[in-house]
Design a protein around this nucleic acid. Structure first.
Length: 211
DNA sequence: GGCGACACCTGGAGCCTGTA
DNA sequence: TACAGGCTCCAGGTGTCGCC
């Protein structure tokens, strides 16, 4: 169960939410030898195919077996959550990862994604994105979220953040220069997003990932 | 497809820290 | 002490998402 109040649970009839303790992730990472630093999950808000399939499978299993004895469900859950932890560490963790997983989606959504990738430094608005997609902004926002798993603007911000990581680690440029150079309108926006995704400031991130 | 409430982003101001 | 860079705060603007 969620350790904090999730407002989305109130807004929808049904929500399948998985929370995994950081200690379990660290232990799994240690056993697998995947990562030596604190796990970071910039890509997890993104709908990764493997993680998405696995969580869908767990959800369906629990729906089908909701009336069966709780012991078998408990065993299934324990094993499944360990598997999800492994997927998270393999596919989602590590800020060294700077490529989004490839998702096959509708042509007009792909067209927007390619345009965003080509000019992520530009000041995009939802209106401009929907123009590229050839649909209304309301229709576009809903379809994008459904296909990709993130809202258009969130996707763009995350892409900019991942693009900036390499410069943070490998260059001596100031945080301000990197933020503006990657399409963020101000350094405060960049800092706030960085803090929200990684729970650390760009400077702390740079220090941690320097050889 | 459009609306409205609310969450999130923006950007300026100001504080903190390190350096000369 | 002055200055630069990094960070946080906050009010106003914009985007998102559930609902019709």
């Amino acid at each position: 169960m969620p350790s904090v109040d999730h407002k989305q649970l109130k807004a929808t009839k049904e929500k399948f939410l998985v929370e995994i303790q950081p200690s379990l992730l660290k232990e799994t990472a240690l056993q697998l030898g995947i990562i030596m630093v604190e796990p970071e999950f910039a890509l997890l808000p993104y709908k990764h195919p493997q993680i998405h399939k696995w969580t869908s499978f767990i959800r369906e299993f629990l729906m089908i077996n909701r009336d069966s004895n709780s012991m078998s469900n408990q065993l299934f859950l324990e094993n499944s959550l360990s598997q999800i932890a492994i997927f998270m560490l393999q596919y989602g963790s590590g800020s060294h990862q700077n490529q989004f997983p490839k998702i096959i989606s509708k042509q007009n959504i792909n067209r927007v994604i390619e345009a965003l990738k080509d000019s992520y430094q530009d000041n995009w608005t939802l209106d401009q994105m929907s123009l590229v997609a050839g649909m209304s902004k309301y229709q576009f926002a809903h379809l994008f979220k459904e296909e990709i798993g993130l809202s258009p603007y969130s996707w763009l911000q995350l892409y900019r953040l991942l693009k900036s990581q390499e410069q943070l680690i490998q260059s001596e440029q100031s945080i301000l220069t990197i933020a503006l150079g990657n399409g963020f309108s101000s350094v405060s926006t960049y800092n706030q997003l960085f803090k929200r995704i990684y729970n650390k400031t760009p400077t702390e991130f740079r220090f941690m990932h320097r050889p």
